[in-house]
Each structure stands twice: as structure tokens, then as C-alpha cells.
């Protein structure tokens, strides 16, 4: 382990395109330090989700990385085989999506699904997977975790399902969590609870977070640094205080004005 902090994630010149069409992500570069929370904010079509999916190598069919590199703790993710990538996903790098319902298996009990995550990465999650699952369900403050473990996804509320996703994401002590609109589908009061829980788990495990969202309030509340994406490019980046309180790029200014009009 080095004493001078090296970036945990380093993305350079990332360019992604669908077939021969103009790139949807163009020359994107940024770093995430260990334990840091970095937000990528942008409107739909800005390329923020495609950037996240490139890191996980989960691009939709037809899309490919045209140029650029993605290094995770020195490991070139863009060059790994699918088999190697599978060991990274859910292990060193976990992911949470907007809609927990579509990520959970509808015919599998909650406890089994959480335990499954531990079983896939035995080297990282020690002990009996089932016991570990209960422990994690309790760590994300689900009341009566033994009972929740026996339930199916449709028997839980949206907020409870997102807690389950967080339990699954953290069961293997990931070093990086990529969260794509983790609270967007939730009611505001539940959103606050979920963001708070993510922060708590992140601090306990020292995890870095890359948070993808269209919601500037969520970035302002949770992130250390922010990258503003527009039409496939990063147009502005810096600490949340710099970027959101003193935006320099006209696009960031426009985005903030649109929210500011509320006041």
C-alpha cells in the first residue's frame, strides 16, 4: 500500500459510440480517490449513465469503447476479459441502480439473494453466507431482518427494496460503489433515509462512491466533488462548493438557474 494516495479509479479519454454514430461519451476523464464521493450530474442524454456502464463494462448492445482507458487500482478494466470482469463486479466494485425491483429476482427470497452475493465472492465475504445476509439486512436497518429475509421482493416497499440493494452492494466490502440514480424513484422522505444509509455504510467500510444523478440537490447533499456532463462531455468539474456555488460554465449556470427559479 502506498502512503501517497493514488486514485482508486482513473478514467482517461473515454469515448463511447453506438456503431458508427457520433460518440455519446467523448473524451471523458476523471479520478476517484479512495473513500471519496464523486457525483456525475447531467440531464437525460448527457452520457452520465453510459460513462458508469463503461466502467462496469455493461454497455448496451451496439455500444463500444472507441478510445480511452479505465484503470481501477491500476487494473485496466477496459482490457479485461468477461470472466475477469465478473470477478470485479459485485466484489471490488458494486453497483446500485434506480429501480431495485428490476434488479431483484422476483421468485427468490430476499435472504437467499443477499446470501448469493456473498457466495459469488467467497474470498471477500467470510463466514456463512446466510448468517452474513441477516447481518447485512440488520446493518441497513431493516426491522426484523429474519422475517424480511424470508420475504419476496414484491412484499417490500420501494424504500425497503433499496435497502436490500444496499445490503447486497456492501456485503463484499466493495472499494468502489457506483450508484446510478439510487434515490430517484423514491419519495423525498425515503430518499433522504436512503442517502443517509449509503453514507453510513460508505463511512463504515471506507468505500468510494461514484454517484450518477440528474438531481443537483442530491449531489449538493452527498458529494465531495462533482463532474457536470453535457452532450457526452464533462463541461465543468471541481469541489461541490466551487461548482454549485460559483458555476463557471454557462451550461452549469443554466442548470442551476432552472432549480433556482423555485426560490
Amino acid at each position: 500500500m502506498s502512503t501517497v494516495s493514488e486514485p482508486l479509479l482513473k478514467v482517461e479519454g473515454l469515448t463511447v459510440a453506438f456503431g458508427d454514430a457520433p460518440p455519446v461519451v467523448q473524451d471523458v476523464g476523471f479520478e476517484v480517490m479512495p473513500g471519496e464521493t464523486v457525483g456525475i450530474v447531467g440531464e437525460s442524454g448527457s452520457g452520465k449513465t453510459i460513462t458508469a456502464l463503461s466502467i462496469m463494462r455493461l454497455l448496451p448492445p451496439g455500444a463500444r469503447i472507441v478510445r480511452g482507458s479505465i484503470r481501477f487500482d491500476g487494473l485496466p478494466l477496459h482490457e479485461l476479459s468477461e470472466a475477469q470482469m465478473r470477478r470485479v463486479r459485485g466484489g471490488d466494485i458494486a453497483m446500485i441502480f434506480q429501480d431495485p425491483f428490476t434488479c431483484l429476482n422476483p421468485v427468490m427470497r430476499i435472504g437467499e439473494q443477499v446470501a448469493e452475493a456473498a457466495r459469488l465472492h467467497r474470498d471477500r465475504a467470510e463466514g456463512d453466507p446466510n448468517a452474513l445476509a441477516i447481518q447485512m439486512l440488520s446493518a441497513v436497518h431493516l426491522p426484523d431482518p429474519e422475517r424480511i429475509a424470508r420475504r419476496y421482493p414484491h412484499e417490500l416497499s420501494g424504500g425497503q427494496r433499496q435497502r436490500v440493494m444496499i445490503a447486497m452492494a456492501f456485503i463484499c466490502h466493495p472499494r468502489l460503489l457506483i450508484a446510478d440514480e439510487p434515490s430517484t424513484a423514491l419519495d423525498v422522505t425515503v430518499q433522504l433515509q436512503i442517502l443517509h444509509l449509503m453514507r453510513e455504510m460508505q463511512e463504515q467500510q471506507g468505500t468510494a462512491v461514484l454517484l450518477i444523478t440528474h438531481d443537483i440537490g442530491v449531489v449538493a447533499y452527498t458529494c465531495d466533488r462533482v463532474l457536470v456532463m453535457h452532450e457526452g462531455r464533462i463541461v465543468e468539474s471541481g469541489s461541490v462548493y466551487e461548482v454549485l456555488e460559483h458555476p463557471r460554465h454557462p451550461y452549469t449556470q443554466r442548470l442551476l438557474e432552472a432549480v433556482g427559479q423555485a426560490g
Binding site: 423525498v188 422522505t189 447533499y221 461541490v240
Partner: peptide, 15 residues
């Protein structure tokens, strides 16, 4: 409770 859950776009307010 509802108002308290609204996250402002400025970090100094949001926090």
C-alpha cells in the same frame, strides 16, 4: 418533514 427532505442545490444549504 416533507420540507426538511427537500435538498437544496447549494451545498451550504443542502448540508
Amino acid at each position: 418533514t416533507l420540507l426538511d427532505a427537500v435538498l437544496e442545490p447549494m451545498p451550504s444549504q443542502a448540508r
